[in-house]
Design a binder for these strands. Structure first.
Length: 878
RNA sequence: AGGCAGUUAGCUCAGUUUGGGAGAGCAUUUCCCCUACAAGGAAGUGGUCGCAGGUUCGAUCCCUGCACUGCCUACCA
């Protein structure tokens, strides 16, 4: 074995092994319980980032854990076509060559995207393989695969025939850059500082009187069809139903009252532009106002006076401001900060406009999706996301599902050329129109929102679209857990639940694990534009895949964002190396490799340290099992780190070395425990760091490492309490002597003598039995026991637990240093004593605190006082 | 505007299930290459647990208010 763990070689070896041998191929096995996960399919927009790494590692760890527990596990890989996002990227690439999609035409453009798809999906799946993800590659799915298309059509047709999907002319969100409609959640709100213009609207009857309207969008006055005020606003009560004149165009509109108007904001009166504002649209619908369209799909002005016609919005805005100003319509202009909707894919401003789109009525689906969570059929980890989830569903409006782009699932709707016939939903082009029998039908050109197919993902991957092939669906569905970031909770998770309840009459998954976002060490989101992206591939190369995985798991506290930096990968890498070297130590001492696959029955505990480490292993197993089951993977990582490094390596292996040295005839038994502990703890941690653990299992020839369930471990443990007390005693003795040696500056190669003063028979026997550990670890040549030792002048001394230990190291002693050292001890003891004393002098404490607490305090005080007495006595003699 | 989180060592964060003299990693200081490991070992320094009240014998932990930070949601013209 090499001295340093060669992660590059070992990572490569194992991921290839897993993929080539189809280690994680899942087959239906009715004797076993299924445990299935569908991957949140990454968009084919590029390569995987740290957020994906976190997401997939969590899934992989959970799956590997369940696998050890004996479940029949399945994890389905896949990628998402990513609608607008993907089309935008491919268009951008075209633009570099000075081309647009129109230059290529529909078919050629789609061909380009398919080419892009094959490149990026290859890149993505390769990354997943390298990360060690135990996905079943034979089931890899793309959201535009045949089976997914079928599922989409099946779902759409059912919804359409049930009257839940309808085509309507409504106010929607329009992105000029992407040239498509967007659903409400596809907007990102950004703060913007703009002007607030206060404009005079003159009253028709009172020539010089006017009402002042504050607006951020003066260019929309052409679309005004009313002025609205709050019905209980005393300032405007008498103006209700009066007529005002819209500036510039001199159009007559009415002042109406509506509760939606907030009288405390601005002037308390708003201009109602129903064609281009959500609130105004609602007011208009309620009050039967006209709805005017003044901006078209290209962002140009229409239905406006000639000088403005065909201007872009910003041009029209400039012009109207100038014109209003020239004619003295402004009262004042203020700076104003507000939020504006932007496109979540291209970040450009979103305009509300009237458009004919396809909508999905979600009201009954939402109610069911709320009930199922309220009834705890689906659990959230952490729970804190339940409230936002329910609140969102409660306020949900109909979902605009049509997109005016080329890339995606075409809406399976067919129109007869006879325009009076109703559209038909169908899998294939209908042979004839069911209404008029016409033979020419044309398919809708719009495609579906990419999230429509995503919402079907948990069952479309199991061939839901094909009625005759649903064995997998019956066995593996519903899936067991869904692991996702909170940023797509509404966009995706809520919709999967809605669709699953509707189409499958079942939940899509039992548990939802919601993790945070991976940020840089300053808490900033990683993004290419800031340049703070840490690429998982580079980390894997530099520190190893296990180090990447361990670092992510170690810091992924449930429900919180995580910050990562290179230091974390370094310390994880060091931990992996530590495991490697502990293994190396064991292998160097192993003469007989036949006993490697033994179980715990063969283990013989020779002394308390064996009992102690076995007990600790049992505790570790119990605690990590619980943590895994609650998906607290960070706790697993922390528990194992502590056990392995501190307890196993720092203490137990050091003790074992001495045992081997002292009792060569027992070496095989000692090695047996070492191998057993190593093997067990590596099994526990193997879901997190599968590469090194696989390698070690191979080295120690453990062939059933992944099939036996370590989490059922029940070891026989004797007199637990005494063991712990004794372990602490000996550790305390060793630590105190180490400290003393350091302080007095006695080189480690200088052997010293210890004298225990006035210790009881039990302790004496104990130390006598275990003196070798003390001797070799802190280099002691002899240990003596004395009673009422008198002649201690020039000796140093320490108190470990209740043992008083003298060290005759005369020539090293510096009296002043020694005095300082002891005085320091005294000071801390004094603090302790006074604290306990005031507590015990408090009559209320004695009356009301529990007996256990009082006794604990008394014991503390007593122990401190004894220590203090001993130190003071010795200080005198010094 | 509302909702939800967070505020603990120089930095990144645990912990508080059931209230009783605060933990880890990194950084830093000191000593050590003694045959698993210097990517290591041993030891040390470092905290009125955001602020103010309340409940309690006792609060970092429970309650209320406030401040700051972050996120989510929203129709503030």
């Amino acid at each position: 074995m090499k001295k340093v763990y060669d992660h590059n070689q070992i990572d490569e070896k194992w991921y290839k092994f897993w993929v080539n041998n189809k280690t994680y191929k899942a087959k239906i096995d009715k004797k076993k319980k299924a445990f299935s996960i569908v991957i949140p399919p990454p968009n084919i927009t590029g390569s995987l980032h740290m957020g994906h790494a976190l997401n997939v590692t969590l899934q992989d760890v959970i799956l590997r854990f369940k696998r050890i527990q004996g479940y029949n596990t399945l994890w389905i890989p896949g990628v998402d076509h990513g609608g607008i996002a993907t089309q935008n990227i491919v268009e951008k690439n075209l633009k570099r060559n000075g081309q647009t999609k129109l230059d290529l035409g529909y078919d050629n453009f789609l061909e380009k995207i398919w080419l892009w798809k094959s490149e990026t999906s290859y890149k993505i799946t390769n990354q997943l393989k390298k990360m060690g993800c135990c996905l079943d590659w034979d089931r890899e799915t793309f959201t535009m695969d045949e089976k997914c298309s079928k599922a989409v059509k099946k779902a759409f047709i059912k919804l359409f025939n049930n009257g839940l999907i309808y085509k309507g002319k409504k106010l929607i969100n329009w992105c000029f850059k992407c040239g498509t409609a967007l659903s409400d959640i596809e907007l990102e709100y950004k703060k913007e500082i703009t002007k607030l213009w206060y404009i005079k609207y003159f009253l028709q009857d009172m020539k010089n009187d006017y009402i002042t309207i504050a607006t951020t969008r003066p260019e929309t006055i052409f679309g005004d069809t009313a002025i609205a005020v709050s019905p209980n606003d005393n300032r405007y009560k008498k103006l209700i139903n009066k007529i005002v004149i819209v500036p510039i165009i001199n159009k007559k509109i009415k002042i109406i009252a509506d509760y939606k108007v907030d009288k405390t904001f601005g002037t308390g009166a708003i201009k109602v532009t129903p064609g281009h504002d959500v609130l105004d649209n609602e007011i208009a619908l309620k009050n039967n106002l006209d709805i005017l369209e003044i901006i078209n799909n290209d962002g140009k002005m229409i239905n406006v006076p000639i000088p403005y016609t065909n201007l872009y919005i910003h041009e029209a805005k400039e012009k109207i401001i100038k014109d209003l100003n020239d004619k003295n319509y402004f009262i004042k202009i203020e700076d104003y900060e507000h939020s504006i909707g932007t496109c979540y894919r291209c970040s450009s401003k979103i305009e509300s406009l009237i458009s004919e789109q396809w909508f999905l009525n979600v009201s009954s689906m939402s109610k069911k999706a709320i009930t199922i969570v309220n009834n705890k059929k689906i659990s959230f980890y952490p729970k804190s996301w339940i409230k936002p989830y329910i609140l969102w569903l409660k306020n949900l409006k109909d979902w605009c599902i049509s997109r005016q782009i080329w890339w995606g699932h075409k809406i399976p709707i067919y129109y007869c050329i006879n325009k009076t016939c109703p559209p038909v939903a169908s899998f294939e082009t209908p042979i004839q129109c069911p209404k008029c029998g016409g033979k020419i039908l044309k398919q809708e050109t719009d495609v579906l929102d990419t999230w429509f197919s995503s919402a079907l993902w948990p069952f479309s991957v199991f061939n839901w679209g094909n009625n005759n092939n649903d064995k997998d669906l019956k066995y593996f569905y519903p899936t067991s857990v869904l692991v996702t970031g909170y940023e797509i909770l509404y966009l995706w998770v809520a919709r999967m639940i809605q669709f699953s309840l509707l189409f499958m009459n079942n939940i899509p998954f039992k548990d939802i694990i919601i993790h945070g976002i991976v940020r840089d060490k300053y808490g900033k989101k990683m993004s290419k534009s800031i340049g703070n992206v840490i690429d998982p591939i580079i980390i894997m190369k530099e520190y190893g895949t296990d180090a990447l995985r361990f670092a992510l798991m170690h810091s992924a506290v449930q429900g919180r964002d995580i910050r990562i930096s290179n230091e974390m990968f370094i310390s994880s890498r060091n931990f992996i190396n530590k495991i490697w070297n502990a293994t190396r130590f064991i292998m160097l001492n192993l003469s007989n490799t036949n006993f490697i696959n033994v179980n715990s029955n063969y283990i013989k505990c020779y002394d308390i340290f064996d009992e102690w480490i076995i007990t600790e292993l049992q505790n570790l197993t119990n605690r990590t099992k619980k943590a895994y089951e609650n998906y607290n993977i960070d706790i697993v990582a922390k528990e194992v780190y502590d056990f392995f490094w501190t307890k196993f390596c720092n203490w137990y292996i050091e003790f074992a070395k001495i045992k081997i040295f002292t009792f060569p005839e027992k070496k095989e038994d000692i090695m047996l425990i070492l191998v057993y502990i190593l093997n067990s703890v590596l099994k526990i941690i193997s879901p997190i760091i599968p590469f090194i653990t696989s390698e070690v299992f191979q080295i120690i020839k453990n062939s059933n490492a992944f099939t036996s369930n370590i989490f059922k471990l029940k070891l026989k443990i004797s007199n637990n309490n005494i063991t712990y007390e004794q372990i602490h005693k000996i550790q305390d003795i060793i630590t105190k002597i180490r400290m003393l040696r350091l302080e007095i500056n006695i080189a480690s190669n200088v052997s010293i003598e210890l004298i225990f003063n006035n210790i009881n028979e039990r302790d004496k026997n104990f130390i006598e039995n275990n003196k070798n550990y003390i001797k070799y670890i802190v280099n002691v040549n002899s240990i003596k026991f004395e009673k009422n030792i008198k002649n201690i002048k020039g000796m140093s001394f320490v108190i470990a637990g209740d043992c008083e230990i003298f060290l005759p190291i005369y020539k090293y002693i510096d009296i002043n240093k020694e005095k300082n050292r002891l005085n320091k001890n005294i000071r801390s003891l004094q603090k302790e004593i006074s604290l306990s004393k005031t507590k015990l002098q408090n009559s209320n404490f004695l009356r009301k605190a529990s007996k256990l607490e009082i006794n604990k305090t008394k014991e503390k005080l007593y122990a401190a006082q004894i220590k203090m007495k001993k130190i003071i006595n010795n200080l005198k003699i010094l």
